[in-house]
């Protein structure tokens, strides 16, 4: 376990940027800015109009992250949890769960709650609760 610094100001800034992203995508293209849905759409490899805008969005995301890393964000602070098995299991669960549950932190947690969707509220409460419980069990019960 590595202690991370409480950074409310960059948190607010980052959150506001994610919000602006969601607002811009809805205002311009009429779509929900949900990372899992947009990325899963790309994986269908149907090279249609859907694929086209989803690819543009993901490319934009990568440019944004690269720009941040080159200018002000120190990527050396990034610390991963556990070994390759943890990473693979985490990825698998997140992939299966976000397709079944129709969304993730951005789609349900930001966009869904912002349009007062009851489904998104139920999903967000569920994944937050399970994630908190998972961390509690792995860190304080199993002591990993």
């Amino acid at each position: 376990m590595t202690i991370t610094e409480f950074t409310p100001l960059t948190g607010l800034l980052g959150g506001a940027l994610i919000g602006l992203s969601a607002v811009l995508l809805m205002a311009g293209h009429g779509r929900i800015a949900g990372a899992s849905g947009i990325f899963a759409g790309l994986l269908t490899l149907k090279f249609d109009e859907e694929f086209n805008w989803q690819l543009v969005f993901i490319v934009g995301m990568l440019i944004g992250a690269a720009f941040s890393a080159l200018s002000f964000f120190d990527t050396s602070s990034i610390t991963f949890n556990g070994g390759p098995l943890t990473t693979i299991a985490g990825g698998l669960f997140v992939g299966v769960g976000t397709v079944l549950g129709s969304g993730c932190t951005s789609g349900h947690g930001i966009c869904g709650l912002s349009r007062f969707s009851k489904r998104s509220l139920a999903a967000t409460c569920t994944f937050m609760a399970v994630a908190i419980l998972t961390v509690f069990v792995t860190r304080h019960v199993l002591g990993a």
Binding site: A35, S36, F39, I58, M61, L62, G64, A65, A66, A69, T75, I78, F80, N81, G82, T86, T87, A89, G90, G91, L92, F93, V94, G95, V96, G97, T98, V99, L100, G101, S102, C104, T105, S106, H108, R119, A122, A123, T124, T126, F127, M128, A129, V130, A131, I132, L133, T134, V135, T138
Partner: peptide
């Protein structure tokens, strides 16, 4: 389906610390 999916996602998020958006963005690092 919604709640089960969300629970599985929460499990994956809780063991890895990654959700889809940040994970995809972090590829460039």
């Amino acid at each position: 389906k919604l709640l089960g999916g969300a629970a599985l996602f929460g499990l994956g998020w809780g063991i890895s610390g990654f959700c889809p958006g940040p994970a995809i963005a972090s590829l460039v690092f």
